[in-house]
């Protein structure tokens, strides 16, 4: 493939590809990712649809927060069991509301660590006016227009998070 045929304009996601240069030699060059540059909206649509469906199920009590984050982060029961050190059959129980209700705090912490979220976020949904942070093209607009943002800061206590609403003074 010639270098010029692989060029994609996508400054947000750069990759290195190998291609034929003008002089016939092969070598590396940096360009935008094909998937991010051409199909990113479709990717966001798929992940957005999944999150939306799961959120509705979470709100109506059909699934547990563990199930929600497991699916959103593309993990399987086996992977989650391996990562948390919790037996697979227990993980399966924790995916249901009934099982989640009986879970120990230490297990909640293990899940939260894997999902990279505060433990508190297993019990709350923080909705913002426009949940479009997944859209890289939108990030600039958020920065320009926001009047405030929600910040979650760790405390010395691993089970407690401080959630603050920060006013944008600009």
């Amino acid at each position: 493939m010639k270098e010029k045929d692989l060029v994609i304009d996508c400054p947000h996601h750069q990759v290195v590809l190998y291609a034929e240069k003008g002089d016939g030699t092969f070598g590396p060059f940096q360009t935008g990712s094909y998937m991010a540059g051409v199909n990113i909206s479709e990717h966001f649509r798929i992940t957005g649809n999944l999150s939306k469906t799961l959120l509705e199920q979470l709100k109506s009590g059909k699934i547990s927060p563990v199930y929600f984050f497991m699916m959103v982060e593309g993990l399987t029961v086996g992977e989650l069991a391996g990562r948390t050190g919790i037996a697979g059959y227990r993980v399966k129980k924790h995916l249901t509301i009934k099982g989640f209700r009986k879970m120990r705090v230490s297990s909640l912490k293990k899940y939260a660590d894997i999902f990279n979220i505060p433990v508190a976020n297993l019990f709350q949904i923080i909705s913002t006016i426009e949940d479009r942070n997944w859209d890289m093209g939108y990030q600039g607009e958020i920065d320009k227009s926001k009047t405030g943002s929600i910040s979650q800061v760790k405390t010395g206590n691993p089970f407690v998070i401080e959630t603050k609403v920060i006013r944008n003074e600009r």
Partner: peptide
């Protein structure tokens, strides 16, 4: 497409 082009394959 991702595994062939994007995920660190060089295309």
């Amino acid at each position: 497409t991702i595994f062939l082009e994007d995920q660190g394959t060089g295309g």
